[in-house]
């Protein structure tokens, strides 16, 4: 379990993290979401014991990151931003070094498992600096999961990867998520929807929202709205506005969106479409738009 208690970090006069408190339970995949410079990385650096908080503290499985730092670090795996590693070392030597530093009981087995999980077998004897960005990221992930930690902290794990590699990393996170605590930071919205079961939106070091991805999406004004693509949207808009279930109709980029005033919007709209015999190219129920919610939440903080 991660417990952050009034975690705060100041640099000179600048407050990077402003009294963050939260707890994360096993089985949760928490996504730190926020604009660049929001304090996501700084929070992770404090959780992993790299930076000392200006005030407040955090406990990892009961170990205080300040007074019991080494014990806290032992139960954590960490992928720092950019997946730094020692370029002159071979992949195998690097993993062996991390295994020794973590005093793993059976280093060969641990290394073998991590190598297999991240498909690094082919590059084991290659020096890390000769590897592509995707491989280096996988090496960084391999060292993070080497000791099968209870808590995994991954700072932008898919940054700079191609779509296939992103998919691989997300699948890996899903595989491991059942009994662990995983915290990832990202500014990619789709990633949060894909892998996280909890989202924290952070901007200017403050927590602005803490919810499930579905809950976040439900905050959208598009939630349960119906969007139609058809030939004469203006005409359709005036007709649909008459329905009691419709609060408002809006046309954007040739798409007509009607917002709900009450339940049962979609059946009502489909009935009208059928009655009038409109030639509808597309008719969909909106779950909500994450990007719109994100902008809405962080907008007030932009100044």
């Amino acid at each position: 379990m991660i417990e952050a208690i009034d975690l705060r970090k100041e640099y000179g006069g600048f407050t990077a993290v402003d009294d963050l408190s939260f707890t994360v339970e096993p089985g949760q995949v928490l996504g730190f979401l926020g604009p660049n410079g929001a304090g996501k990385s700084t929070t992770m650096k404090m959780l992993t014991g790299f930076l000392a908080p200006t005030a407040g503290t955090a406990r990892i499985n009961g170990h205080d990151i300040g007074s019991d730092s080494l014990a806290a670090r032992r139960c954590m795996g960490y992928l720092p931003e950019g997946a730094p590693s020692y370029g002159e070392m071979t992949v195998g030597a690097f993993l062996d070094f991390v295994a020794r530093a973590r005093e793993i009981d059976n280093p060969a087995a641990a290394r073998g498992a991590a190598v297999e999980r991240l498909a690094l077998g082919g590059v084991l004897h290659q020096s890390i600096e000769t590897l592509s960005k995707g491989f280096r990221r996988r090496v960084g992930l391999a060292q993070a999961i080497l000791h099968d930690p209870q808590v995994l902290i991954l700072d932008e794990p898919t940054d700079g990867l191609d779509p296939n590699q992103k998919h691989e990393v997300r699948r890996l996170i899903e595989d491991m998520s059942s009994d662990k605590i995983i915290v990832i930071s990202t500014h990619i919205l789709e990633e949060v929807e894909a892998v996280c079961n909890r989202v924290m939106v952070i901007a200017h070091g403050r927590m602005l929202a803490d919810d499930t991805p579905a809950g976040m999406v439900a905050r959208s004004r598009y939630h349960n709205a119906v969007t139609l693509v058809l030939d004469a949207p203006e005409q359709a808009a005036s007709v649909l506005s008459e329905l009691p279930q419709v609060r408002k109709a809006e046309i954007r980029d040739g798409e007509l969106t009607v917002f709900p005033a009450s339940e049962g919007l979609l059946p009502a709209v489909s009935r009208v479409v059928a009655e009038r015999g409109w030639d509808v190219a597309e008719l969909r129920l909106e779950a909500g738009r994450f990007d719109e919610v994100f902008r809405e939440i962080t907008k007030g903080e932009a100044a």
């Binding site: 650096k45 992993t48 014991g49 790299f50 080494l70 670090r73 032992r74 954590m76 960490y78 720092p80 931003e81 950019g82 730094p84 590693s85 020692y86 370029g87 991390v98 530093a101 973590r102 005093e103 060292q143």
Partner: peptide, 12 residues
């Protein structure tokens, strides 16, 4: 290179 972050978050 940023490896300092890796080194100092190991149990060292």
């Amino acid at each position: 290179s940023g490896t300092i972050e890796l080194l100092l978050t190991l149990p060292i």
